[in-house]
């Protein structure tokens, strides 16, 4: 497989430019801030619970800390993932390097895979650093690591889908800023359709709920692994990457 050199090149470009550091710092700082707020709120609730024993029943660290943490991180990702992918194809199209890349003896799919995996690796690295937060919780409370891992699997799938959509948009324009904003717009759209579900009824409600990219994250953050949600993310990811491949192919016809 020739995706490896492309992967290495992209990693080098991520860490040779400010992108990885800026995205990484802001991502960690913002999710860290959410984490501390959630923790403070949880602290307050548990102090109240100490005074009202009947409330303590409903209080557990998974529900009270991890679940809100995961859904907040999903929102943070919505802002940061487009920055990770916007450059990948758009910049190569603008600079003309894609023309050269597409004449090397590698399949288009391998180029795509190399870029997707590089973005994925950067994301996994950032996500790995956030394991610090559940780690801190484990010092003063019992953490259900199974639930944590399920949540992280959800974040992985969600983020991977964001990246695939971002790569698709990046392959469709020569302007990385346009690619970034379009990705953000589409992801935001896929997120807010879920809100529409609350007001719709019948089939429409089901459809809207299914399409909503963040609704599928919910069961993961509760520590529940649902095949339906895994299938949703994997399908969405594969579909976006397939379209990106077609967009590269179209480039070969248009020149």
């Amino acid at each position: 497989m020739r995706w490896w050199p492309v992967f290495k090149k992209e990693m080098r470009l991520y860490f040779g430019s400010p992108v990885a550091y800026v995205v990484g710092t802001f991502f960690l700082v913002i999710s860290g801030w959410f984490f501390s707020q959630i923790l403070l709120f949880y602290n307050m609730s548990s102090m109240q619970a100490a005074m009202q024993p009947q409330m303590a029943q409903s209080l557990n660290p998974t529900e009270g800390i991890l679940r809100p943490l995961f859904s907040n991180m999903a929102v943070v990702l919505l802002f940061f993932m487009p920055m990770v992918t916007m450059r990948l194809f758009a910049e190569e199209k603008r600079a003309g390097t894609l023309e050269l890349l597409l004449t090397y003896p590698v399949r288009d799919g391998e180029i795509l895979l190399g870029k997707f995996l590089a973005a994925g690796a950067l994301y996994v690295l950032l996500l790995g650093l956030t394991l610090l937060y559940p780690g801190m919780v484990s010092y003063f409370a019992r953490v259900e690591w199974g639930a944590v891992m399920t949540g992280y699997l959800g974040l992985l799938l969600l983020g991977g889908t964001f990246l695939a959509v971002g790569i698709l948009l990046s392959s469709m324009t020569e302007n990385q800023i346009v690619a970034g904003f379009a990705t953000f717009g589409i992801l935001l759209g896929l997120w807010v359709v879920g809100w529409g579900a609350d007001f719709a009824g019948g089939t429409l409600r089901t459809v809207l709920q299914y399409v909503s990219i963040t609704d599928h994250m919910d069961s993961f953050s509760k520590g529940v692994l649902d095949t339906k949600d895994v299938v949703y993310y994997v399908t969405a990811m594969a579909f976006a990457l397939f379209l990106a491949l077609r967009s590269l192919e179209a480039k070969r016809w248009k020149g």
């Binding site: 490896w4 050199p5 492309v6 090149k9 080098r12 470009l13 390097t97 090397y104 590698v106």
Partner: peptide, 21 residues
């Protein structure tokens, strides 16, 4: 000659050599 401005010459050529097999 479209090239990657952010890569050093030798690293770039190593990438090309590898991708060319």
């Amino acid at each position: 000659a479209p090239l990657y401005p952010d890569l050093p010459v030798a690293a770039y050529l190593d990438f090309v050599a590898e991708i060319k097999g």
